[in-house]
């Protein structure tokens, strides 16, 4: 059976939440949902895992801090030690207070940009990428759930359609 995708549109986030919960109760698998703003709790209803972007940011930040400190060691201690303002650059720790500000800045720089780039790549939102939301109103005031017939073999198309209707959709459409 060729896979079809059925979309159900809601005009309210409340009906979307109760609708999605009801469909899942009936045993349907919802592939995804498209909303104009983050609907809190929807991830739990659909069973979407939380992202690990924060951990990435931590790692990027750590790399930034290490890079900055090793840079200081190289530039100011090893390669060309300079005694400026009575601050001898014999060893790194003696002059550490003067290095803290840039270490901090560089940590934040790496963490923020590293995470932002990862975010754009993971979401695949990049310049020139074509939008894949099923209906233009999902970025305005409509909420759309996506159901794949392939993933719901024990339901017929008609079943899915009627189940969707029961939950208060304002429009149902499908795509091959």
């Amino acid at each position: 059976m060729a896979g079809k995708t059925i979309f159900g549109m809601y005009d309210d986030d409340g009906t979307l939440m109760t609708g999605a919960a009801a469909l899942i109760d009936k045993g349907l698998h919802i592939k995804d949902a498209y909303t104009p703003f983050p609907v809190h709790g929807l991830d739990r209803v659909l069973g979407v895992k939380w992202t690990r972007l924060a951990q990435c940011a931590f790692i990027y930040g750590l790399i930034g801090a290490i890079l900055a400190l090793s840079g200081f060691w190289f530039f100011m201690i090893s390669d060309w030690p300079m005694n400026i303002g009575g601050k001898p650059n014999g060893v790194l720790y003696e002059n550490l207070p003067a290095f803290i500000p840039i270490t901090f800045e560089f940590t934040v720089l790496c963490a923020a940009h590293g995470m932002a780039i990862t975010y754009l790549l993971r979401n695949w939102t990049l310049p020139g990428v074509k939008a894949r939301n099923p209906h233009p109103r999902t970025t305005d005031d409509h909420f759309c759930i996506e159901i794949s017939t392939e993933e719901n073999n024990n339901f017929s198309e008609e079943d899915i359609n009627s189940l969707l209707k029961e939950t208060g959709t304002v429009e149902i459409f499908e795509r091959a």
Partner: peptide, 12 residues
């Protein structure tokens, strides 16, 4: 802590 310490350390 750092602001107070660093400024005093730096100006010396």
């Amino acid at each position: 802590f750092f602001s107070q310490f660093m400024l005093i350390w730096y100006s010396d």
